[in-house]
């Protein structure tokens, strides 16, 4: 299979974002954002805190209503602007075609429900009705995110932070979503734990051909996972392009600053 970026470009975009803006009072959340995401592509959005990257992700995923602009998703019935969708339709997307990995796993997991129940929920939401098979799928997915099968009946609050995050990823990917939103998926984890999670994510992205939008302040994350990169500052996209290109030959002075500060670490 030809997975080059050029092959992907030939198909219809999975997500087209046009002039997207969100304001908080007089303050800019994000403004005039434009991009296309193609199937199988991973887009990284980087910037420091307050750059508008999280606001942008919330607008894309329908958690926040933008003040202007379009977010057109290639639904199975054709391209639709998710901003104009009824909330019911948007939520249908959220539990079928989309997945959302929160920075804090507590926001993305049901803490009172066992690991198996957490992974099984999306399967049951789309009609799975065989306990044995749901459990089997849950155990399989726990294995894929490196959680031992004998933890299937434990609740997430008995898990370490890294395990919780891996469980959240399993819960999101079990139904094979077409688009995954990730908000700082490695944030709040120890460096060694981060490395393991990144490695796992890279494997899953390759193996499943995931389309994803990852927001992070950590350039190592996008270097490893993202095909393409958008750099944000003060709510605006200041630079975008292929990841290697942006990181190795930054054009905007802010990107240069960002890249050099990482190199110093």
């Amino acid at each position: 299979m030809d997975t080059s970026i050029w092959a992907k470009m030939k198909t219809q975009p999975l997500l087209s974002v046009r002039d997207l803006s969100k304001f908080y009072g007089g303050r800019i959340g994000c403004a005039d954002v434009n991009f296309d995401l193609f199937p199988g592509e991973v887009l990284g959005i980087v910037g420091e805190s307050g750059s508008g990257k999280s606001t942008l992700l919330s607008c894309l995923a329908g958690h926040l209503a933008p003040d202007r602009g379009e977010v057109i998703f290639a639904t199975t019935e054709g391209p639709r602007d998710t901003v104009l969708m009824a909330e019911a339709a948007r939520r249908r997307l959220a539990r079928t075609d989309w997945a959302y990995v929160h920075q804090n796993p507590r926001d993305g997991l049901r803490m009172g429900v066992s690991a198996g129940g957490n992974v099984g929920e999306r399967l049951m939401a789309v009609g799975a009705r065989h306990y044995g098979q749901i459990r089997e799928a849950a155990v399989d997915w726990l294995g894929r995110v490196e959680i031992a099968a004998d933890r299937v009946d434990d609740r997430p609050n008995a898990f370490s932070g890294g395990m919780q995050q891996r469980l959240q990823i399993a819960r999101n990917l079990v139904t094979g979503p077409r688009l995954v939103f990730m908000d700082e998926p490695t944030g709040g984890l120890d460096v060694s734990v981060q490395a393991r999670l990144l490695d796992l994510l890279r494997g899953l992205v390759r193996e499943m051909g995931l389309s994803a939008i990852i927001v992070t302040h950590d350039l190592a994350v996008v270097r490893l996972l993202a095909d393409r990169l958008m750099v944000m500052k003060g709510g605006y996209v200041v630079e975008q392009g292929l990841t290697d290109q942006v990181l190795d030959d930054p054009q905007h002075e802010y990107t240069q600053l960002l890249v050099s500060s990482v190199l110093q670490v």
Partner: peptide
């Protein structure tokens, strides 16, 4: 939305426990 997945999560938890 006929979003009844949660209902079965409850039953799933019953059986697993």
């Amino acid at each position: 939305l006929e979003d009844y997945g949660l209902m079965h999560v409850k039953l799933y938890e019953d059986i697993s426990r």
